[in-house]
């Protein structure tokens, strides 16, 4: 674990340097935004500099940090719950053909139920507490993680499984040396997808159900017809998602999957 953290720190500069392409493409998006804003009413689409100035104002008066903190706490709690429960249940389901076949339709039902439906149920069950956004995020993140874990276990090479049996690997070693390294290559993309879902769903849940957090702040800007403020909050949310994904999950994934790229 310490090794992974060290590798992450050592690999970070090269990784960031390799991100110039991504940064350039983001700047291009910003330029198109600015171009479009010249032709549209500032109430419909304010130009990026106004939005960034608004965001800067929100950040410097300290308001934004606490709201982002509240939202991040809720999103990450729901995501972490899903990550634990979904990964574990998915891997268990993958071990048994019967469980996998039974679980499929349930997951389809979960995927098919709109998050807004869960949100309404959660509001009835949990009221205006943290439980509402956390539960909604948990339910929305669960299907991709569960499916990823199940697929990972199901696709493990039968020959390797037989080899592990022939060499009498004990259960824990089987989990850490055989299943997890293979399943992680399915779990990581699923986790990243779920993280994006968690960020989107938490804002939606807060918009409708809570009095604080980024979602609630968006509700206020909407009622005041403050487009610049709305966009500022959106930029803050997207920015923090990008930071978590590209500064934390991606580099860890690269390190864990180093064996794959060295072929």
């Amino acid at each position: 674990m310490i090794g992974i953290v060290r590798q992450w720190l050592v690999g970070l500069p090269a990784y960031l340097w390799g991100g110039w392409g991504a940064i350039a493409s983001l700047l291009l998006l910003l330029a198109s935004w600015e171009f479009a804003s010249q032709w549209l009413d500032p109430l419909a689409l304010p130009d990026p500099r106004t939005v960034l100035a608004t965001l800067h104002g929100l950040l410097t008066d300290g308001n934004a940090w606490s709201e982002l903190g509240v939202t991040g706490r809720r999103a990450l709690s729901g995501f972490a719950l899903s990550l634990g429960v979904g990964s574990a249940l998915g891997m268990l389901a993958g071990l048994s053909m019967t469980a996998a076949m039974m679980a499929r339709p349930w997951v389809t039902v979960l995927v098919g139920t709109p998050p807004i439906g869960w949100l309404v149920l959660a509001m009835l069950w949990f009221g205006a507490s943290d439980g509402t956004p956390v539960f909604t995020v948990f339910v929305a993140c669960f299907p991709p993680i569960f499916i990823g874990a199940m697929q990972g276990v199901r696709t493990l090479d039968g020959q390797l499984r037989e080899m592990a049996q022939a060499f009498a690997l004990p259960p824990l070693q089987r989990l850490f040396d055989l299943y997890l390294p293979h399943v992680l290559s399915y779990l990581f993309p699923a986790w990243i997808t779920a993280l994006g879902v968690s960020w989107k769903v938490v804002v939606m849940a807060e918009l409708l159900a809570t009095a604080d957090g980024v979602g609630a702040a968006l509700a206020v800007t909407r009622s005041q017809l403050d487009t610049a403020g709305s966009l500022a909050w959106i930029v803050a949310v997207v920015g923090s998602l990008l930071a978590v994904e590209y500064l934390l999950l991606e580099p860890v994934k690269r390190e864990v999957e180093r064996w794959r790229t060295l072929a």
Partner: peptide, 24 residues
């Protein structure tokens, strides 16, 4: 056992693969 295919764990170094049974 030795099988027709090497059946090595792709995510472990050659050394760790050789030591697999000892670890077990």
């Amino acid at each position: 056992c030795m099988f027709q295919q090497p059946r090595l764990l792709p995510w472990k170094s050659a050394l760790d693969n050789i030591a697999l049974g000892l670890k077990a």
